[in-house]
Write a protein that binds this DNA or RNA. Structure first.
Lengths: 206, 206, 206, 206
DNA sequence: CCGTAACCGAGACGGTACGTCACGTCTTGAG
DNA sequence: CTCAAGACGTGACGTACCGTCTCGGTTACGG
């Protein structure tokens, strides 16, 4: 006969599941509490884990939140809608949808704020969020070039700089719209943005 | 006849000097400590003021930092450099210079992060930072229209939406470049950005 | 079979040394500062302990001071000096000596004052100070009855009421002499008091 | 030529009504809040008076409360009930009734506690409360001597010491019964106390 | 009957302590 | 060894009063 007090308490290796549980608990806490009221003690409780376990794996709140948020952006997919404009609209809408989620908004901006004073954190964000999603720009450009919508790049260095710039413009615009202007990046806005991005301000309005 | 709610309230009036000292101390603390390690007690000490004085005037850290940061952006001026492209480059460089300052970076992002869970704070940011600087877009466009570089708008509502969009694109791009990509928004970058903004991606690269 | 609410609770156990250090620090602070200027932060510092540790164990200043003061009265011993009068004089002098100590004066009166508005505190004082020392009256009476100096009680309830009354008279007189009249309860006063207690006012003065 | 330190000082005289209002407000606050939660700001508000007015007249909370409480004991009257025992019972019951009032309990004990560390306060209490009520002992003794219930004193110094002792015993017993034992000093208790006071413990119980 | 000096209310000020909370570390017992 | 539980020292929080200090305004004497 077994002890009543340990119905599911079967032995050792929880270690593997713990990481996922902690990151999920972190996102849940971000939704409910926001970054500044999120506490590691609370995350540990939600994840059914001791505080010490948590500190064994992450240096602190910032690192934990970066990892928890980074996973969110891996859902992004570049759709094939037949034209560059439509592809951009599609991916920007996806990005806007993710940024509209409270755990993304609150967590992302906070760690970026923290990263201004923490070189290691800045690098962690760049590597696991920014660089990781830059693939979308590269794929999109390649596809547009294949379609003949964009000219082929000649100098690879120049190509890289341009990709970075486009990423800054696209991601920056959505972030600013969503968080600073506090307006939804909805279909209408995305259409207008895409037109400006592709044709510029100088072109006469249709 | 005078207002019944007396023009000079009873009791000792609030020290005018204190406000300025507190905001300056807040910026100094942001530079040295960053947002998350900034404490109101420390700000009070730096300003030579009691903590209670600080709480009498601001609801908390967030509101204080918004006010302290908002003042930074009032330095922005739209230069008249003779062409729309040059004007944009000029103002974007100024904006980039301000955003490069540690008190702006750390403070601005953090309050935006907080604002995702605080409607009043979001409105405060919009009013005292975002809307306040939108004037630059409006002036710039008017000047470009006077020069014939941009067509006159026909529908005022459409004009307003476009101004908002341009502001999101410009400010967003600088913010993303500076904070997410963690690269300087230097003259070269600003030139590239301005070209994309004015002519779009579709135009063949020179 | 063991208790289900485990005999040794989980987690790090409370430091045994801390309790003693805190009570000693409390008495030291009472001596130096008195009750009203005693702060829990200061007690914690003196005891080499964090403020939170203190709050984990006591509900507040009052409860802490009661415990610190209660220990003082446990020194009281009923001497055997051969006669009821001599025994009373001996114990009253001891009691006066304790009450003359600043930590006792200041602390005891203050918590009694507080207890007028706090039922739980009143009960704590009664249990850990008043009832605890009533033993002296009971022992003294038993000894005097053994010597034939006092008649045996017949009704136990009456005996209890009388013991309470004697305790009120003895302790009250010393308290009043020491604190209200602010005069020392010295040997001469104790002798006079004992004579009145034993023979009453009506007896002609020798 | 007039005195330079004018007999009636120049300027607006202090409001006579304010003093009474403040003392009444102090007692009301003692009833509602007790000593430790009584604040001078609150007393000022209750009295319809500015805090500064209050500080102009009293040095602090302690002095104010002494004055407020002292007035309570001036109600005490020595009744003429025909015998020493009956007179004592009468006055002790009156004293017990006053001490049962929350403003007396809370305020009196607290200032006595404070007085253990403040010579001036100790003297103020002695003068305006203790000495002031000692008259009851003197009158009572004189009346009992006139009736032949007590012998005449021969040495005036001895007489004074005895009066002090009796006051300590009587007042102390009531205080201890009421506040330390936290039991009512009701008629039955007062009768028992009076019998012990007059005949002593050695006398066999009737 | 007018000046003036001390009073008054209101309330902001620099402080101190409060009691709470989260931090990140540590110490225990169980497995 | 790793884990959960939880106590620990530290330090900031936001609040409440302290006693002091301006303020503008109001008496009531005394010249």
């Amino acid at each position: 006969m077994q002890s009543r007090t340990s119905p599911t308490r079967a032995g050792r290796p929880r270690s593997a599941a713990a990481d996922a549980a902690i990151l999920a608990a972190t996102r849940a806490a971000l939704v409910e509490l926001g970054w500044s009221k999120l506490t590691l003690g609370d995350v540990a409780t939600r994840a059914g884990v001791a505080k010490t376990t948590l500190y064994r794996r992450w240096a602190g709140k910032n690192e934990l939140v970066v990892d928890a948020v980074a996973e969110l952006f891996d859902e992004l997919r570049l759709p094939d809608r037949g034209s560059l404009a439509a592809d951009i609209e599609g991916v920007v809408l996806q990005f806007a949808a993710i940024l509209a989620r409270p755990e993304a908004k609150s967590g992302l901006m906070a760690v970026v704020a923290e990263s201004t004073r923490d070189e290691a954190l800045r690098e962690r964000i760049r590597a696991s969020i920014v660089e990781r999603q830059k693939r979308l720009v590269l794929e999109g450009r390649a596809r547009a070039q294949a379609r003949g919508e964009l000219p082929l790049e000649e100098h690879p260095e120049e190509a890289s700089r341009t990709a970075d710039l486009i990423f800054d413009v696209v991601a920056g615009a959505v972030v600013h719209r969503t968080l600073f202007s506090a307006e939804p990046a909805d279909e209408e806005w995305v259409r207008s943005f895409t037109r400006v991005l592709l044709t510029g301000l100088s072109s006469s309005t249709p």
